[in-house]
Design a protein around this nucleic acid. Sequence first.
DNA 1: ACCACAAATGTGGTCTTACCATAGCCGTTA
DNA 2: TAACGGCTATGGTAAGACCACATTTGTGGT
Lengths: 235, 235
Amino acid sequence: MKMNGPIKAAEPRRLYQQIADQIRALIQGGHFVSGARLPAERDLAQQLGVSRPSLREALIALEIEGSVEIRMGSGIYITAEPERRTWQTGSMGESPVELMEARAAVEGSVALAAAARISAEGLTSLREALDAMRSEIAAGRKPLDQDRLFHLTIAGQSGNSVLAHIVGDLFDERHSPLSAQIRTRFETPETWRNALREHEAIYDALDARDPLLAQAMMHAHLEESKRRWMENEPR
Amino acid sequence: MKMNGPIKAAEPRRLYQQIADQIRALIQGGHFVSGARLPAERDLAQQLGVSRPSLREALIALEIEGSVEIRMGSGIYITAEPERRTWQTGSMGESPVELMEARAAVEGSVALAAAARISAEGLTSLREALDAMRSEIAAGRKPLDQDRLFHLTIAGQSGNSVLAHIVGDLFDERHSPLSAQIRTRFETPETWRNALREHEAIYDALDARDPLLAQAMMHAHLEESKRRWMENEPR
DNA sequence: ACCACAAATGTGGTCTTACCATAGCCGTTA
DNA sequence: TAACGGCTATGGTAAGACCACATTTGTGGT
């Protein structure tokens, strides 16, 4: 295995950072697969043309970020798989059906948690979102923002910001190609009126602070959304 | 300025981690105020009773987490915002407790779905992950990859790739500072053995194709993980 | 007295060398 | 075949040296 030459000392970056960058590039370039063992420190330092303490400093950084695991007496092992960002690329290749089923699962849990702890302000905000949604429908417009606000408000009331972020991610522009398709399917005033009714049912369950009912209503709403989408899906 | 005595070498943690912990404690204890300059490396190493290279490794860690800024020829300075280093995770800068509660909610749903449709190959893969995890524990190693494989295999069996991606994201390196901290807490063989037992219970429920039991077991596992983490959290 | 420049000193950065602790491999023996 | 022990390889830590950069101090000129 032939390594690149010595690291240039003329660059302003700390040497350990440069070494870590180089090792990262080797990992991501497929030079080491997950679970593989790197050469011994002495060998790797020589191959990279640096001293062993400098290499060790770089390995500290890589260990902290989780790319490698260092085992005394054994060696340095690659722990990370490079590609975990497919989530963001919209290249999930999944169908809207899967997205909506995922939303049903996640937002069901969110509604359950929210019903147990929703504040008066939360209920007020939901009420307002519902009223605004009704106005938009009556005016012949698509209440996209109000729909979003309704769902994200519930997520915000779950008491778990990780879940709230997930709901937001599932809903928002990051999945634009997919969510755009979904939104296109809700073109008729009737489907929007149905969705509004389902929102009302969710609101009532939250108002009643009934977690299981809220979960069921949210789940039903998203399952209905899925069904509406499938009925409108072209062949 | 009188420092504590030498770092005990008998503890299993890496020396750099111990030194970093000690310096962190000094910072958090108000020994150094924001913007203050630490003693020179040579002096600080002597005061802490360690070698300078070991101290430098610790300073790398502290620099990466943002606690200190190292200026060549000048010194090491406490950064202006001490509380940046707590649980900064970028888009999900929430506490580990929230992350684990979110995982309980999501992975509970995932286990429920997986139990209804898991294939023979899926069960075989889970069996293998469990066996590999047991081997790692018996060998005194941290079965990080096997733990991950177990969870992601279940997610893959849910029949919903959106959910699978969510689980992967919640687990993986994108949340590296957070998940690295969480992983650090699972250092003892006993906690790993407990986790393995909980995995077995999940596997049994999946094998029995009992969705509600699988959900409950997964939920319990992640709640236990949370509890273990909270018990290990430093004060 | 003030300013500019040079020298001295202090600091972190990197390297070399040495020794210690742990892990793994291989050969031998029961 | 399995267990044990010895040897080798590996990472962990330390000491010392030298280099590059930054800061402080001293000196000379105006």
